[in-house]
Amino acid sequence: MKINVNKIDDLFTNYKKSGKTAFIPFISIGDPDIETSFEIAKTLISNGADMIELGYPFSDPMADGKVIQKSYERALKNRVSMADAFNFIERLREISEIPVIFFTYYNPIFAYNPSKFAEEASAAGIDGILVVDLPPEESDELKKFTDEKNLDQIFLLAPTSDASRIKLVASYAKGFVYYVSVTGVTGARKSLPAEMRSKVNEIKKIKDIPVGIGFGISNPEQVKEIKNYADAIIIGSKIIQFIEDNLNDKKNIIKNIAEFSYSIKSSLM
């Protein structure tokens, strides 16, 4: 049996020692097609990504804004299945060891069978699972299997989370806590709420766990500010916008994403 040493924990332990903040880009598997999304993942990895978050497209992405909704729609036209997703990650594993977070909504996992999902996800090389519509209250059905496979089930906290929610989520959280910067859906925003910093501090006071911030982050200026208190920044919509804007020019998608990724990584240095 393969022993799955959790790479997410390793990375944050190392980064904490050196005071670094991790860059976690998000893309959807299969957008605009499987091969191009694989190229994009490679591009992100070679241009500074410390981890990668891969979205498994869902028909009804209720927590997502327009950009990711459209990304999923494009991916679904290619009928990306769970087997395709695992195959994608296995291929990625052949060329890179960076931690992979699998992001989706619960129904595709439930339909696949949570036990089978955890087993195959682990075998494919996934390190963390983030299910956006699975709060701690409903997570046991999946968590008992992901825990068995040493997959980190990552939970969210939000600006609306009070101390009792933070305590509950922190008690379930593994790997890191994903702090949603805004009350809202995913999507690039020009300005982000000032309360982020105090919320992150509040979380860390309750549990000493890495905190990544996502939703709305779109430029190096925001990153330079956030890196002072967050352990990771997650950027999705801004990257996927490059796909949407260059659907007829795949070279340009890669070029734009490479440049953007590099600029984010540089601003974290």
Binding site: V132, D133, P135, D162, V180
Partner: peptide, 20 residues
């Protein structure tokens, strides 16, 4: 007490909405 009707029901929503 958790909003389940047998195996159905529940609260499958994003954390942002849980407090509400």
């Amino acid at each position: 007490s958790k909003g389940h009707f047998g195996e159905y029901g529940g609260r499958y929503i994003s954390e942002t909405l849980m407090p509400a």
